[in-house]
Amino acid sequence: ADLPWVVKPEEKMKFDSIFDSLGPVGGMLSGEKVKPVLLNSKLPVDILGRVWELSDIDRDGMLDRDEFSVAMYLVYRALEGEPVPMSLPPPLVPPSKR
């Protein structure tokens, strides 16, 4: 539980600014707001679907800012050629959700 989050503070700041630019309501972004952002990555939809599965940790169909950071982290890593894992590795679980 003391593992450092893989999302580094610099990255978190970048992801948070994207999150805020998308107009969160009550600190949450709906799937409809996040979907076009992820589609912009040009990654295959089945990959993006898995990214969503892994990042919507409470499965409420919305992403809060930590969940959104997980999604963005996975998208950026996928664009660098790293495979998207089938399940969320513990270091990727936001400290607020452990």
Binding site: G31, V34, K35, L48, G49, W52, D56, R59, G61
Partner: peptide
Amino acid sequence: QYPAGGSSTNPFL
């Protein structure tokens, strides 16, 4: 509330 796709909470399914 949920995007098209029935009861799924995943907008990509």
